[in-house]
Amino acid sequence: MNLLRPIVLALSLGASLPAFANTESGDPRYTIQNPPAYAMIGDLLIARPLLLAATVIGAGAFVVSLPFTALGGGVGDAGKALVVDPAKATFVRCLGCIGEGFERQD
């Protein structure tokens, strides 16, 4: 019994160490996220299809609103909000991450 206690303690401590791991890279320009498996699965099956639909719908809305936004001078802002931001969240962001995969911090 005395031999079993340190083994169980070592295994339980070893299993909990990744929870305390620092997910920051050494480079201050980039942050690296390490999402759990359930977040990746949920992102793959739920979030990415919804974001793809949002990108397609946003592109359609951008084309429809283009004459009006051109008159107001907000084409760049409308394109970024309706097309670029959903597309970045769909295709650039790592699977299960909250932000983009490698965010540059200037």
Rank of each mutant, 00 (worst) to 15 (best):
L71Q: 11
Q33S: 12
L82G: 02
I98V: 07
G42T: 10
A53L: 11
L95C: 08
L50Q: 15
P36D: 09
L3W: 07
G96E: 07
F62E: 04
V84S: 04
L95H: 04
I46T: 12
A61I: 09
A39E: 13
P35G: 10
N22G: 08
G72P: 00
F102S: 09
L13P: 00
D106W: 05
T90R: 05
A15R: 01
A70Q: 11
F62N: 03
P49F: 01
C94G: 14
K80V: 12
R5Q: 15
R48S: 05
T69D: 14
Q105S: 08
V84E: 06
G101Q: 04
G73K: 03
D77Q: 15
D85A: 15
G101R: 04
L52Y: 12
G58A: 11
L4P: 04
E100H: 05
V64P: 00
G14P: 05
L51A: 13
V8K: 13
E24K: 04
G26F: 09
P35C: 10
L52Q: 06
I46F: 12
L13R: 01
A59V: 03
A21L: 09
D85K: 14
F20M: 12
D77G: 14
P49S: 07
A61M: 12
T90C: 12
K88V: 13
G79E: 05
A81K: 11
G79V: 01
F102L: 13
L71T: 06
L13S: 03
L17I: 07
F20A: 13
A78F: 10
I32W: 05
A81H: 05
K80L: 15
I41C: 00
T90V: 08
V8H: 05
T23L: 02
L95A: 07
A47H: 15
S25F: 01
Y38R: 05
A21K: 09
G74Y: 03
G96R: 00
G72Y: 15
S12T: 14
G96I: 02
I98D: 07
A59S: 10
A47M: 14
A78E: 10
E100S: 10
M40T: 01
P49C: 04
A10T: 09
L4N: 08
S12Q: 00
G76P: 00
G79R: 01
C97W: 06
T90Q: 12
V92R: 10
L71A: 09
D27I: 03
S65L: 11
A61C: 13
S65P: 00
L95M: 11
